[in-house]
Nucleic acid binder design. Sequence first.
DNA 1: TACCGCTTGTGAACGGATGCACAAAGTTGA
DNA 2: TCAACTTTGTGCATCCGTTCACAAGCGGTA
Lengths: 261, 261
Amino acid sequence: MVDRRGAGDEVVTTAAAKRSADAPAESAADVRERARAIPEAAVARLAVYLRVLSGMAEQGVTTISSEELAGAAGVNSAKLRKDLSYVGSYGTRGVGYDVEVLVSHIERILGLTRKHSVAVVGIGNLGHALANYGGFPSRGFPVAALFDIDPDLTGVPVGGIPVNHIDDITSVCAEREVSIGVIATPPQAAQAVCDRLVSAGVQCILNFAPVVLQVPDYVEVRKVDLAVEMQILSFHVARRADEAAGDVVNGVGVDGVVIRP
Amino acid sequence: MVDRRGAGDEVVTTAAAKRSADAPAESAADVRERARAIPEAAVARLAVYLRVLSGMAEQGVTTISSEELAGAAGVNSAKLRKDLSYVGSYGTRGVGYDVEVLVSHIERILGLTRKHSVAVVGIGNLGHALANYGGFPSRGFPVAALFDIDPDLTGVPVGGIPVNHIDDITSVCAEREVSIGVIATPPQAAQAVCDRLVSAGVQCILNFAPVVLQVPDYVEVRKVDLAVEMQILSFHVARRADEAAGDVVNGVGVDGVVIRP
DNA sequence: TACCGCTTGTGAACGGATGCACAAAGTTGA
DNA sequence: TCAACTTTGTGCATCCGTTCACAAGCGGTA
Ligand SMILES: NC(=O)c1ccc[n+]([C@@H]2O[C@H](COP(=O)([O-])OP(=O)(O)OC[C@H]3O[C@@H](n4cnc5c(N)ncnc54)[C@H](O)[C@@H]3O)[C@@H](O)[C@H]2O)c1
Ligand SMILES: NC(=O)c1ccc[n+]([C@@H]2O[C@H](COP(=O)([O-])OP(=O)(O)OC[C@H]3O[C@@H](n4cnc5c(N)ncnc54)[C@H](O)[C@@H]3O)[C@@H](O)[C@H]2O)c1
């Protein structure tokens, strides 16, 4: 059952909340150690929990159980509890989790207490959409710089930010303290752009171009490859079609192609 | 070493190529069985190998070793060989893989022998970019329908396809045999749109809206959540900062916040 | 205060993916 | 024809992540 006491109820009474308010029971070293051990898959889920929890908080929910949160996030409740245990033990047995407390601790672990300025490179179809997207700034990722190689674009404001020329990438990134670079250029230009971002000091890259980027060890790359996503869906369609065809006359494979004539 | 004999060399002499040309050594049931067993992670990598191989083929490369392909795809060569073994044994020991043969077999396993028509719902910033993107049709995913709720948009062609009203989703999807639905609406509308896609018979969904969709078991959903990607990058920044701070005076945690005063 | 019912947090078992290392198999050259 | 060399395909050990199941802990209640 969701607790809807309302957002006005500010009296904190749970033991867990008290603990976190009074004296943190763990050292900075402990936090470090734990952060290092969190599996990547769990980090991705924590980000989802955070979004769900933020929505809950807005609706005035103050307390939530692992079962409820798991349902809302679409995962197993045991997995959720294990994920939260990487963050620390901030639940109250017999009750659940204080939404606000959980939000602030997940934010801390994900490093969202500091702002991460984003630069988008390649202001074409996709770059425009990204520059105009309100979902980044609102989550602590202000878009601070835009770059393109097209001289017709430089100076033109997109989403309120004027486009800079790619040649100015080093100085502009340094000046605006860009920590995340987004590559939305054609695939042929992606590796070169990536190299320039890296030499400009950017250590985190989100890549939309369908190429495998080569980067030094200390740079973190995440790729969003829509064609790959489509192909994974396609695989499932095919598998399903195969299963359905499993009962028909043998010797005929996928798509009706005769495999054994 | 990359074999660059040129695309004109059509004389096939390797045993593996012979085998696949002469008599397929396995039944339809075998293919089914194998397809069912391929881990999802391997499927995603196969899609990447396919892209790299297609590029190789265009450059006239006819043969490639696991080591080379692994390098180009950014994975361990043993992993690559295991992945390819899910598809079947089409390599030639001492030589490598015939690029064309491999491409066609991966395409078969991924179900790319049939076309998968795509419908995009929500023709806003992102929807426009997707509709205009040439990378989908060229990979066997023709964008066959666009939907929006905004009456001003209906009838307007975007990327060559006129936008339909969301209310026509069932008839249009059936008519154009849409098998993949892409959701690019605001988050509030996403679940409703998803439900409509499902009742229109679409069983594969790619979701860009930052919400967890609830669907029946037989529907496959993949989500692309850019804010989550950003937060994962943020986590790595924080972890790195923590490690760097690990040598300074203890008692001070992330962001200079005093944890033990 | 003492008990009851509920929910967390986690040890342990399990399952799946990864990487190593090598036999098997094919090619090349003598 | 044979031996040396190259590269595949895979058994096996390992690691990581998921899931189960339950003791421990907390709030509520009498
Ligand atoms: N449009 C989509 O929906 C979509 C979907 C998936 C993937 N992608 C990928 O995203 C990338 C961008 O797609 P798009 O449709 O926006 O392409 P686009 O052609 O519309 O835009 C590319 C932009 O990059 C700029 N550019 C080219 N070379 C550059 C360089 N060296 N430095 C800086 N800027 C440079 C161009 O001037 C152009 O403005 C592509 O790699 C594409 O494969 C796009
Ligand atoms: N723009 C981006 O770069 C970006 C990045 C990441 C995620 N997203 C997500 O993608 C989604 C779309 O983003 P956007 O920037 O294109 O938004 P947008 O507001 O520009 O476009 C949304 C479109 O959906 C249409 N729409 C609204 N309700 C609908 C309904 N019930 N049925 C059909 N169409 C409906 C609207 O008319 C509008 O055209 C959002 O959920 C957003 O969070 C966008």
